[in-house]
Amino acid sequence: MVKPKFYDMNVHSIPDGKNTPQQTSILAKHFGYAGIAITNHSNIESKPTGFKSNGFEVFKGIEVVSNNPSKLHGLIGKYRRNVDVLVIHGGNENINRAAVENRNVDILAHPCTPKDSGLNHILAKSASENNVAIEFNLDSVFKGRGGRRVHTLSYFRKNVEIARKFDVPMILTSNAASYFDLRAPWEMIALAGLFGMEKDEAISAISTVPAGIIARNRPGPGFIREGVEEIIEEVNSKDSSIDIDNIDSEPEEAGVSN
């Protein structure tokens, strides 16, 4: 079995959190993560940072905060081109809805509102169509205590159920503000079991789903726009000679047979 590569897609750093991306990445690397995304809140002055060192990558990200759906769409447009991961600070009915209806959004973070789980069948359908991942921020499970945690767990359970039914991508994050808020990948998977996520779902929620987000936002060199890609560069690269021959010979053969 190939070892999965794990990613934590919602980590905060100075000035939004307590540590620098470098400090947090030391521990994340020790825990066996392949990368983390630094997603500071957009209402706090900080520039998205990203770097790569010894097989560990810190991705540029942002957590967009707004109270107004139309302003939110504007902010998404403003930040989209500069970041690898675009997260929406959810938790409000209108914002949740605006987030799942925008194709440029990668993750809807902590959608749970004070009253309910923040997700229903309509939002789930949009999220599925627009490929917006629903976040399960595990910090509220391991840091919370008492009634609040009880509510969080039941909302998470409900969201897993809805996401499963409508095939919405799920993502597990730590939402860490300090390196003490990070948890190792297998601990995250164990925590996800508390609200009914199956092991394989949890593994993909912390490995393939975040990897897919990164791949989607870092298109290859020939990319023009969604669905349109220039493939000349690929044809010219390795083991392409056969393809070229085939392409050339096909019309000729057709001509002969006619």
């Binding site: 499970v141 948890r183 164990a190």
Partner: peptide, 16 residues
Amino acid sequence: RAAVTTITHISGKRVL
């Protein structure tokens, strides 16, 4: 595993 990872503070200091 899930239960022991909920330990966040010991005697007021952060632990993990």
